[in-house]
Write a protein that binds this DNA or RNA. Sequence first.
DNA 1: CCCTCCTACGTACGCCGTACGTCGCAGGGA
DNA 2: TCCCTGCGACGTACGGCGTACGTAGGAGGG
Lengths: 209, 209
Amino acid sequence: MSSTREPLTRDRIVDAAVRLIEREGVEAVSMRRLASELGAGTMSLYNHVPNKAVLVDLAAERIMADARPYHVDSDDWRDHIRAHARAVRELARRHPRAFVLLATRRLSSEAGFRTIEAALLNFDRAGFRGRIAVGMMRAMVSYLLGTLMREVATSPELGGIALSQYADVDVSAFPLSAGVIGELATYDHDQEFECGLELLIAGLERYQS
Amino acid sequence: MSSTREPLTRDRIVDAAVRLIEREGVEAVSMRRLASELGAGTMSLYNHVPNKAVLVDLAAERIMADARPYHVDSDDWRDHIRAHARAVRELARRHPRAFVLLATRRLSSEAGFRTIEAALLNFDRAGFRGRIAVGMMRAMVSYLLGTLMREVATSPELGGIALSQYADVDVSAFPLSAGVIGELATYDHDQEFECGLELLIAGLERYQS
DNA sequence: CCCTCCTACGTACGCCGTACGTCGCAGGGA
DNA sequence: TCCCTGCGACGTACGGCGTACGTAGGAGGG
């Protein structure tokens, strides 16, 4: 009966939090729920974690650490940047419910630095150094953050958000919008992601010399 | 004594919510607090608003409606795109605590459509039509969303997040990062915004043909 | 054998959103 | 005039939240 139940650990707690976040989203996380899923008393968690906020931070970092190295067979810096961007997107798609967390938080961990270093290497290959490289990288990060936020915030709802959303406004007052209402009402995330990516790369080429 | 106190109204409630959000952020909003600030009983709010979630939605839309028209003296599409982007940024900076709200939500109101229409007009000027224009616009929106999220999420804390964040990781393991650690630790939001903006415009020029 | 310390846990407080029932009042028919 | 009806304001109550605090029990060192 009193079998040595697995003792509480910061790791075990963070793991449970990550699983819960991925299953039901951040808003489902509560100390009571987490504890009961671990078969422990609520307040026992506080022996390993100072409060809920840092627990969520830890979970975010753990998820961030799931960023995987990517591999490309090419000497072209463009291919490296593409691969890096796609890797970030894969991370976001692997953890759609948790991505808002990563986006909100300022990541300071080693995993974050690995990503930064890899990005800087790619920009270095393209001939960008110093503060310029940082600026370009941040523009890229902003784009990724933005598209992926839009993508993961949109996808959990059934694919077609479509026209029902716009039903109550008089579209005819906006002629240009009316002309592309079909495109406005649908999302092809793959294609849109690549489209923006190529746009940024084209800009980079322009600024290269 | 029984002076005709202002009666509760959906408008008055939403106004109070907007003010509270701007003052202390979304997480400070609670039905009890809102009611007490209005000098009303908590449950009275529910006569005008079905629940808290839609109240927050209404507040977000009200803030979105604060987007202001911008004016440019130029025939160059680049200047129009710049002006539009800066206007969005101004909106974000006027409502830093509320911007996450706007970013998260899918805006369906008329105000949203006005913005879309204006953007499409600018891309039309640049020679982009149809699905291509929508793609370019969405890339632009993604960039704006990303930078502004980063900017407003960063600014409320004292300006210098700086090196303390990175203190616990061994930077020497990341040579490129180490070389620009000063730039990584500081943010010049004005300059970074413009930098990314010009990068996108350069990309657009490239795709224009 | 005892003392110390660490961890698990229960209780309690002050918040939260909101379902539900009541009360008072304004306005309209008879 | 009186009464009825409907609506807005409000109190109470329930279940859930984060967490401060006190306690108990067991492991390990003296």
